[in-house]
Amino acid sequence: MTCDTTSGPDVALRRRPARTRLTWLLVVLTALLLAMTASVAFGSRIVGWADITAALGGIHDTLDQAAVVKRLPRTVLAALVGAALALSGAVMQGVTRNPLADPGILGVNMGAMLAIAVAMATVGMHTATMYIWVAIAGAAVSALFVYAVGSLGRGGATPLKIALAGAATSAALASLVVAVVLPRGDIAENFQSWQIGGVGGATWDSIGQVLPFLLAGLAVCLLCARALNSLALGDELAAGLGERVALVRGIAAAGAVVLCGAATAVAGPIAFVGLIVPHLCRLLVGLDHRWLLPFATLAGAVLLTAADVAGRVVNRPDEIEAGIITALIGAPFFIYVVRRQKVREL
């Protein structure tokens, strides 16, 4: 059984006119094109349009053209990781009906980080594929643990309990990461640069190794869009509509964990993208996951690409990692979401 078998009543979803959605789709696609162009053009040196087109055409004779070639994989990876994290956050919010759900806030990123730290310190890893598998396993274990702890007690897995469980788990796992890495000077330097979160070390090889995982997670999450609409109506009503609630939750959550784990493996634990983007997209296209998930994917690519560009521009010729930029944006947004009284549950 796939997740795309049962549809909840459309009247239960806040909808937007098709013209409005198509207009915003054009806006987001334009923003993504502009962000990716800026990512290629701006950095320690500014590259003109003539050099960009020449480099894309295969001419690499000047320093500016060489800079374009070097920035291309970084631009592509930023878009892929941003899309993966935003889609993962949107699906996690839909599965848990928790407006605070985000791979970083729920401890999923930190679980992937701890798994990589332990593997580096014990068995050693030499390929991006090994990093990805280990990160996905760590993310899955952390997600299951947080959901289990948040489900304890009266009322089950409420949004507040899951958020608190995620925050506590993140803090505990962060301490374990320090305990694992600190005594190992041989891995500490590389690990510390990775754990900040950024796409500066992107290569076409690493993109090629992570791309199958991202595509698999993307397919699973998008196939679950219609079923997530049913879950938004409540478990009892969703079951009454013929939805296998536990199975749908498990499949959708698995897709989100694969996306988060793979993105964390290649870019480090970048937080708040999965929190900010889904909320903004709901304002634009409504609650229908068949529209929300694709929009969140595109908007996440825009956000992380723009954050990476900002990190290169504001402190030239040095850089500020994209994970720091998203944290500066996301922390105030998180406080805003927490203080809103109408978003205790989706």
Rank of each mutant, 00 (worst) to 15 (best):
L13N: 03
R14E: 14
W24E: 10
L25P: 00
V28D: 13
A31R: 06
L34C: 11
A35R: 09
M36L: 03
A55G: 05
G58M: 05
A67S: 13
K70N: 11
P73A: 08
R74Q: 13
V76C: 02
G82I: 09
P99C: 08
D102S: 07
A115Y: 04
H126C: 00
T129S: 14
A137S: 13
G138P: 07
Y147H: 11
G156N: 03
K161E: 00
V177E: 12
V178A: 15
V180G: 09
G185R: 08
A188M: 15
G201F: 09
A202L: 06
T203Y: 00
W204T: 06
L211T: 12
P212H: 13
L215Q: 08
A219Y: 08
C221F: 02
A225E: 07
A227W: 01
A227L: 01
G234S: 04
D235P: 02
R244H: 15
A256C: 03
L259G: 10
C260E: 05
C260A: 14
G261M: 03
V273A: 04
L284D: 03
L284N: 01
L284G: 05
L287V: 13
L292A: 02
T297D: 04
G300Y: 04
A306V: 09
V314E: 06
N315V: 15
N315E: 13
F334I: 06
Y336A: 13
K342P: 00
K342T: 15
E345L: 10
